[in-house]
């Protein structure tokens, strides 16, 4: 097994852990972290798979994508935190209430 493959599998595992966290954690900050973990997993996969040319020289495009992705992730995280803070401010909640009352 090559290193890139190993990294890629690592990334997939991270993605899975993040997914688990997002779904099962109830505390909102934990959820935020879990989503970021998912993102990190995807980025890891991308970077690992950039090493796919026979020469071993990395493909620049996935790197560019990851950079873009990080920007997106940061802004999304900021928005999440802002909303969570506002919710907490208004209601004191740290978890999402149940669905039924809409």
């Amino acid at each position: 097994m090559t290193y890139p493959t190993l990294y890629a599998i690592c990334g997939v595992v991270l993605f899975g852990i993040g997914f688990y966290g997002t779904v099962f954690c109830r505390h909102l900050i934990r959820k935020v972290m879990a989503v970021n973990l998912m993102g990190a997993g995807v980025f890891l996969v991308m970077i690992a798979l950039a090493a796919r040319t026979p020469s071993g020289a990395p493909d620049p495009i996935p790197h560019a994508m990851v950079l873009t992705g990080i920007v997106v992730a940061v802004s999304a995280t900021a928005l999440m935190l802002a909303l969570i803070r506002r919710l907490h401010h208004q209601t004191g909640l740290t978890e999402l209430p149940d669905q039924m009352e809409h």
Binding site: F15, T22, V42, A76, M80, L83, L87
Partner: peptide, 20 residues
């Protein structure tokens, strides 16, 4: 706010699936 946060998590998760 609750709705927005729930939506955001769902959407982000979907995006990350897509990105993978």
């Amino acid at each position: 706010l609750v709705a927005a946060i729930r939506y955001l998590f769902a959407a982000l998760m979907g995006s990350l699936f897509y990105l993978l």
